[in-house]
Every structure is written in C-alpha cells, then in structure tokens.
C-alpha cells in the first residue's frame, strides 16, 4: 500500500506529461476554435445585395436548395489577406467550377464595389453585412473565413484565414472534393 502511495506522484506526472507531449503536436493550433456549425444547417440570415455589382444578395434560403455544394466566403475590402485570397478564389471558380457566394463583412459598400471592380467579381451572390450581425450568426472570428455548404444547406467545412498558399488551397480543395463525392454517392 505504501509503495503504491509513494509511486502515485510519479504516475500522475507521467499522465500529465503525456498530455503535454500531445499538446506539442505541430498539427495542433492552440488558437483554433472549432466551428459549432459543422454538420448543422446554415444559420438564419438575409442580406441585401451590394448595389451596383449586378449580382443578387444572399440569404439562408439561397443555400438550402442549390442541389450542389457551394462555397461561402466572408470578405472585406479593408482586409489585406483577402486581396491575396481573392486571386485564389477566382481561379477556383474559373478552373474547378466552384460556386462561390460572398458575405461582404462590415465594409463600406463604396469601397467594396471599387475593390471588386478592380479585382473582378468571382461571386455568384454577395450579401452586404454592414453591422456584422450575419458574421456573428456564422460564428466568424475575423475575415477572411470560408465555409463549404452542401446542396441542402448543411454546413460541412470551415476554413479560418486566407486560402493562400499550397497547403491552404489543398485543404479547401480536398474538403470540397470529398463533399462532392459524398453528394454524388448519395444521389
């Protein structure tokens, strides 16, 4: 009994040490917060269009009956990484046939319009979220963020930060391909 008792501190320390070692795993990002939306229906929101761009606004109802997976991207003209990401998203729309929806987060419509006119508009629909309330509904912590929503409006994937660089693009493409494959198998 006493032997066991004096070995107890050692055992506890070993267990804690195991957790600490796990925590150092380079794949783990201590700052990442999992989205509560995953596998949930897209949140309730209804945003007016960006005047002058010529594409309609975005609401939850636009996501529930698409019949195929779409990508929802939260962006803003004041967000520097968004500019870098924009080129990548445009390429995905052009080359991979991605359907891209945009939420213009807390932006001045004038700035957003100029930004999109300069860089081109890859978005099929754009909702303007002036007060950031839709952003909160989506549980975003900053811009940019990118979601994959399946044909029936269920959120399946979320990427935090700009989709820039091979690793990020790879992650998003893989997730999209998987969603597409599942949708194909299901129908």
């Amino acid at each position: 009994m006493k032997r066991l008792l004096v070995a107890l501190p050692l055992l506890i320390v070993i267990v804690i040490g195991g957790f600490l070692l796990w925590g150092l795993n380079p794949e783990r990002d201590p700052n990442a917060i999992p989205s509560v939306l995953i596998s949930q229906p897209a949140p309730e929101f209804d945003l007016p269009p960006l005047e002058g761009i010529g594409v309609p606004g975005l609401a939850r109802s636009d996501l529930t009956e698409t019949g195929e997976p779409v990508v929802v991207n939260v962006f803003a003209s004041w967000c520097v990484p968004c500019r870098a990401e924009h080129a990548e998203l445009t390429r995905m729309v052009r080359d991979d046939g991605v359907r891209l929806m945009g939420i213009n987060y807390k932006d001045k419509p004038k700035d957003a319009l100029r930004w999109l006119n300069n860089l081109g508009n890859p978005y099929e629909r754009i909702g303007t979220d002036l007060d950031g309330r839709a952003g909160i509904e989506w549980g975003i912590s900053g811009v940019p963020e990118t979601f994959i929503v399946d044909g029936s409006g269920t959120v399946l994937y979320r990427y935090v930060g700009p989709v820039v660089g091979d690793e990020a693009v790879e992650k998003l493409s893989t997730a999209l391909a998987q969603v597409r494959a599942n949708a194909g198998a299901g129908s």
Binding site: K2, R3, V6, A7, P9, L10, V13, I14, G17, L20, L21, L24
Partner: peptide, 21 residues
C-alpha cells in the same frame, strides 16, 4: 524542455518512489 522536465521530474519522483518508504 519537455524532455528536460521528464528527466528531472520523472527521475526525482522515481527516486522518491524507491527511497521514500
């Protein structure tokens, strides 16, 4: 650092488990 921790804390507590009784 974790390896250092393991050596020093683990080592001393092993010694403790062995000698304390």
């Amino acid at each position: 650092i974790l390896a250092l921790l393991g050596l020093s804390i683990g080592g001393s507590l092993t010694l403790y488990a062995w000698r304390a009784p």
